[in-house]
Design a protein around this nucleic acid. Sequence first.
DNA 1: ATTTTAATTTAAGCATGCTTAAAAATAAAA
DNA 2: TTTTATTTTTAAGCATGCTTAAATTAAAAT
Lengths: 218, 218
Amino acid sequence: MKNISKEDYLSVIFKNLDEEGGIKPNIIASKLVVSNAAVTDMLKKLAKDGLVDYKPYKGIQLTAEGESYARNMVRRHRIWEVFLNEVVGMAWDKVHDEANRLEHSSSDDLINRMEEMLDYPEYDPHGDPIPSKSGRMPKLKKHRPLSDLNEGESGRVIRVNDFDQKFLVYISGIGVKLDEKITVKEKRSFDKSMEVIIKGKPWNISSKIAKNVFIEVK
Amino acid sequence: MKNISKEDYLSVIFKNLDEEGGIKPNIIASKLVVSNAAVTDMLKKLAKDGLVDYKPYKGIQLTAEGESYARNMVRRHRIWEVFLNEVVGMAWDKVHDEANRLEHSSSDDLINRMEEMLDYPEYDPHGDPIPSKSGRMPKLKKHRPLSDLNEGESGRVIRVNDFDQKFLVYISGIGVKLDEKITVKEKRSFDKSMEVIIKGKPWNISSKIAKNVFIEVK
DNA sequence: ATTTTAATTTAAGCATGCTTAAAAATAAAA
DNA sequence: TTTTATTTTTAAGCATGCTTAAATTAAAAT
Ligand SMILES: [Mn+2]
Ligand SMILES: [Mn+2]
Ligand SMILES: [Mn+2]
Ligand SMILES: [Mn+2]
């Protein structure tokens, strides 16, 4: 195989199955910013390659081979993110885009070496779990979006979505980072925005922001 | 621009102009392992992009823009090689192939960070000079292929060609590395093979080997 | 100078990964 | 249940970067 486009499709499918329990052509198209027609096309090719189980109109699944390929892509991506962040000193809001390209261009040998240098990290800089060489995925602690918390509740950040750099820059600016404590002071029903307390300071955040920050459930 | 194929063509053209003083479609085709027709095709595209000066049958030159793009590609490649070798601990016979892919997938920011971490190296693991951010190329000391040395002459290795992994594995095995002293004990006219002394030990090497190892001229 | 060989370019065609527009299937609303 | 809206697939077409085969040009040999 070995093909940047196919690798991207597989990653998107894998992550959505993992996080949402399902995937439709629709979602793939919007995540990869291509037309629905392009997705149908590629699904056929991936099916022919034996990587995807695809029944038109019915559903999309990964085959065993497709899943293990995809899992390895996620592993590559997240190891690159940790490496860029910890060894090269790149900010957490920049590593995702860089890793998105590097993940397709590195040998397994290089990935394994970086993993060893980093002493086998279990989570990437945004809290996402890193599959081991054998494919085992560390369990994420139980968590829910900040947007689900009620007034008065508080908890620690355990994961943030990493696909939008501007989002990461913004939340860094108000002090959000992994393991930081956040308290919901006020929640407004008309637009779902909320006032939160971070390091003693109050901040107003939109529901869009709150939906992409995840809080550990105690 | 930004395109793996075009970047590879530019690098090959630049290196050949730099090292041999000229370049023909022929050479490009063999270095990139594509047909001559593919080269003609691509030369037209690069000309249209304003990166190459191309007169059919007459000659190939880089424009100012093409040269600076190519120089930056060589810079990326060689900084990756040093980084992989020194930071990641990858053997000198493996870094070239890995860098050949990574060079297309990294931001200038990443390259500059790696360069800084490495304290601005001037030469890559095979002795090739690394262009600075501004494009300045460190001067290589005067040198000639080992194959040109006469019986009794000796000198230190200053550079080796890095494009064939097996070649590097082989010469490593007989003790050839940068700055190592080599003495020519015997030179056989019928096949240009020679017996050389490395670290006190005699070795028989073919002219093909000797042509790819470069010795500093005192 | 003529012939032969080698290098280069042109021509036609193929696979990949997209696009837009139209058709078909499914899901949602009335 | 019937109509409407949404999603998905099919169809046709385009750019890219290759290929092989044929034609052209340049270089080398006689
Ligand atoms: Mn990421
Ligand atoms: Mn991440
Ligand atoms: Mn190299
Ligand atoms: Mn090198």
